[in-house]
Computed example of a mutant assay.
Amino acid sequence: MIARIWHGTTKAEHYEAYTSFMKLKAIPDYSSTEGFVKLSFLRRIEEGIAHFHLITYWTSLEAIKNFAGNDYEIAKYYPQDKDYLLEFEEKVKHYEVFTE
């Protein structure tokens, strides 16, 4: 299994609105992709900035390519992200996941 980790930031005042957007748009997009296993959605506010980490779990790198395209290390953004995000990190991180 492969974990794909994305990080984004918004103003603290957009904390709930961006969370709603993620639940309505991004998470269904991830979960409808073949090879998607599950996700963890992490969020916190620190010094007036809202931080979001989305950890998605996939069966393989090929499954991630179904979602993100062949250049799977590039972060995928939605048009609405420009209304919230303070910056657009170019890349995501991938890790092999071992469970017992």
Rank of each mutant, 00 (worst) to 15 (best):
M1R: 07
A3L: 08
R4Q: 11
W6A: 13
H7P: 00
H7M: 14
G8H: 02
T9L: 07
T10L: 03
K11C: 01
K11F: 01
K11G: 02
A12Y: 10
E13F: 01
H14M: 08
E16Y: 02
E16C: 00
A17N: 06
Y18A: 01
T19Q: 07
T19E: 13
S20I: 07
S20P: 00
F21D: 03
K23P: 00
L24Q: 14
L24V: 06
L24W: 03
L24F: 11
K25A: 08
A26W: 06
I27S: 05
P28C: 06
D29C: 10
D29S: 13
D29N: 14
T33S: 03
G35Q: 09
F36S: 01
S40P: 02
S40T: 12
F41Q: 11
F41M: 10
F41T: 04
L42A: 09
L42D: 04
R43D: 06
E46D: 10
E47G: 04
E47L: 09
G48T: 11
G48E: 08
G48Y: 06
F52E: 08
H53A: 11
L54W: 00
L54E: 02
I55E: 07
I55R: 06
T56L: 10
W58H: 03
S60Q: 09
S60D: 07
L61S: 02
E62K: 11
E62L: 14
A63G: 05
A63L: 13
I64K: 00
K65Q: 09
N66I: 08
F67R: 05
F67P: 05
A68S: 15
G69V: 14
G69F: 13
D71A: 14
D71H: 11
E73R: 12
A75P: 04
Y78I: 01
P79V: 08
P79T: 12
Q80A: 15
Q80K: 15
D81M: 03
L85K: 12
L85Y: 05
L86Q: 14
L86K: 15
L86F: 07
F88T: 11
E90G: 15
K91M: 03
K91L: 06
K91N: 10
V92F: 04
H94I: 12
Y95A: 15
E96D: 09
E96A: 11
V97Q: 10
V97I: 14
T99W: 01
T99L: 06
E100L: 04
